[in-house]
Design a protein around this nucleic acid. Structure first.
Lengths: 199, 199
DNA sequence: TATATACGACACTAAGCAGTTTCGGATATA
DNA sequence: TATATCCGAAACTGCTTAGTGTCGTATATA
């Protein structure tokens, strides 16, 4: 009953094409932005025809929205480092693949700006899929530090959790300067930790 | 000699059309972004013909780049408030027109993302014209606070000066949430001031 | 084996837009 | 007054691209 109207005859759809196309969509989106991206760029990147794309998604906007919604978080929030100090935890999350992922997410976010302008409802789900997971990780690390009495209990955790995402996005999209280990460390040591220190 | 090849005959160009068109360009850019903007939108907004635009700028990109470069800073860095405390100075800069200007600049910056992608050299001048002035103001206020011994002398002034611009831009473009007085105050009291406090 | 659908490839349509040209009228010089 | 340039308006060209349709082929059911 779950597939009541599923076709019984004919060649089956290849589900691996779905994920291939969604992944290619994110790549092109990060490289050229929504307006610069064409369906042909996406299709040809995975050796597919446009028809194969339009058989699955009704429009370019639908494809992009779905691709963003299907993004997976790179960091497992249920298996975070626990070094005993907030600084140790934050620094432990700075690894080459994590940095690259952060830049990639910033570029995807930038590619979405013009689409969000036209579909404001997308802002929420975009944030939830792209930067939300990292903000949630920070929030959890801060809360843990408060619970163990390491940092000020009345720190504005919500706002502080968004600092690194905001600054990485800004640096990547607007300043076009590289996000490297030294920059992320300077955010931790120059802003985050001083701001939460007990006094 | 300065106008050696200036035409002697015929109707003169109306210089007021230049500024009208540049101003309209920034408006449309903030509203629809670079890719969504058409020359007709800009021209018709100030009751001009496309030919009048193309007589002055060779291309859409040239027009936008010039419009951004000609942006004026809303805050006069040589006439900053001096309340005696860093918090007082920062709060004194939060006025309705300043907030609106900050949101407008964020949207212009967002509208430029796709153009910057194609012309990376633009990133520098865009930052200098749009958010640079506000960062410079913060830097000056911080330096003054250090000079009077109010805040920690080894605070990372450069980074801290960029915090508010980063977060306002992020909130406006990505989260699409309003930037109001309460939000700006929370940045000051929840991040900036705690981070620079002497200990 | 007959039928129905998916596939990649590609031709095709329709719309939007950058940039050019043309027009009648206005404004400057000589 | 003759000439040259500007103006707003609008027609026009050329290109790009979203989305559709078609083709020959591959793969599923019955």
């Amino acid at each position: 009953m779950t597939q009541a109207d599923a076709p019984k005859l004919g060649r089956k759809r290849d589900p691996s094409r779905d994920t291939d196309i969604l992944e290619a969509t994110l790549e092109v989106l990060a490289e050229t932005g929504y307006d610069g991206m064409t369906i042909d760029m996406v299709a040809s990147r995975v050796q597919a025809g446009k028809a194969t794309v339009y058989r699955r998604w009704a429009s370019k906007a639908d494809l992009v929205i779905d691709a963003v919604a299907c993004m997976k978080s790179k960091v497992d929030i249920d298996n975070l480092p626990d070094t005993g100090t907030l600084r140790g935890d934050l620094v432990a999350l700075i690894k080459t693949p994590t940095i690259q992922d952060a830049e990639r997410r910033a570029k995807i976010m930038g590619g979405l700006v013009s689409l969000i302008e036209r579909e404001p409802g997308l802002a929420d789900s975009a944030h939830r899929a792209i930067t939300g997971p990292r903000v949630a990780v920070n929030r959890k690390l801060f809360q843990r530090a408060i619970d163990r009495g390491e940092i000020s209990a009345d720190a504005d955790i919500e706002l502080l959790s968004e600092v690194s995402s905001s600054m990485v996005t800004y640096r990547t999209l607007m300043l076009r300067r590289p996000v490297d280990r030294a920059y992320l460390i300077s955010i931790i040591d120059g802003i985050i930790l001083p701001a939460v220190a007990k006094r």
